[in-house]
């Protein structure tokens, strides 16, 4: 019997061309819909700001991306991007680093687990945005408060994720390692750490979303630069011609980072990908 189903049903096997077509279709429809709506509104009101035309967005972005800002002497898109990436990189990086160390120790040492796990659970339930004002009061409106917000928002999740991964390592393997002459320290850092490293990359990938949320929220409230700052600044002038490309730019950055991390997993940790199936 030949499998005829191309699209419908659980036995469907789309051909290569069809799968490319299916991939592109929703995007094409979205863009077409936008173009039509924009065209319609501009006919009604040539100075419409809500759905700017593609050419309008392109000109605006041309100005901010490739021309030096007259007042600051900087390329605005570049300086915004760098400021945001620095914050998110520092915050998420610190969270990943401390998260993996804490997760390892929580997972392997019952004493540490009893001492800190309840506290960690408590902290992880606090909505980070609820303590944002507190962070601004304590750490000032400079970089530190923003980095700390990203850290506080992602650290408990990363730690818990690593902790659960460590707990899943079979008891047998740990005993085995001790029979091979490992000290407790080398068990933690030479046997368990390399095994959970791919999971760390994965949990950082997952936490990129929340990290962006916290970044933009803190930039929206107080900043002098950054992607979130810019979006909230130009909102006052209804400058959709800048907001929409900025959002797309953030999406591009997100996809790129995600792709880099995924490639790292695929090429450096093939054993892990095989295990996950």
């Amino acid at each position: 019997m030949k499998n005829k189903a191309k699209f419908w049903g659980i036995h469907a096997a789309p051909s290569k061309w069809l799968s490319w077509f299916l991939f592109a279709l929703p995007f094409v429809l979205l863009i077409l819909g936008y173009l039509l709506a924009s065209e319609y509104r501009h006919r009604q009101n040539p100075s419409d700001k809500l759905l700017p035309s593609f050419s309008k967005m392109a000109t605006t972005m041309q100005h901010v991306a490739f021309e030096k800002n007259k007042r600051t002497g900087e390329y605005q898109l570049l300086s915004d991007t760098l400021a945001s990436l620095k914050r998110i990189g520092t915050g998420l990086g610190m969270a990943a680093l401390l998260g993996v160390i804490c997760g390892l120790n929580l997972g392997l040492f019952p004493g540490i687990r009893h001492l800190f796990l309840p506290l960690l659970t408590f902290v992880s339930i606090i909505p980070p945005l609820a303590i944002l004002p507190m962070l601004f009061i304590v750490f000032g409106v400079d970089e530190l408060a923003k980095v700390v917000l990203i850290f506080i928002g992602t650290f408990p999740v990363i730690t818990r994720d690593i902790y659960l991964t460590v707990k899943k390592i079979p008891r047998e393997q740990i005993v085995k390692t001790l029979t091979l002459g490992a000290s407790q320290i080398s068990l933690v850092y030479r046997v368990v750490l390399p095994q959970i490293f791919p999971r760390l990359i994965e949990t950082v990938r997952i936490n990129m979303g929340p990290a962006w949320l916290f970044l933009i929220a803190s930039e929206a409230i107080a900043a002098q630069s950054g992607l979130g700052y810019r979006i909230f600044l130009v909102r006052r002038y209804l400058a959709m011609d800048m907001i929409i490309p900025y959002v797309l730019w953030i999406v591009c950055i997100g996809i790129t980072v995600d792709w880099i991390l995924k490639s790292l997993l695929r090429y450096k940790f093939s054993w892990y990908m095989k295990q996950q199936g």
Binding site: S183, S186, Q195
Partner: peptide, 26 residues
């Protein structure tokens, strides 16, 4: 020394590194 039914090997190491794990750790 111990050999279990499963979980005896380190999934992140090659066969050679698995065998070398003991001498290296000690």
């Amino acid at each position: 020394g111990i050999v279990y039914q499963k979980y005896s090997l380190y999934p992140h190491l090659t066969v050679l590194d698995n065998v070398l794990m003991g001498p290296r750790l000690s």
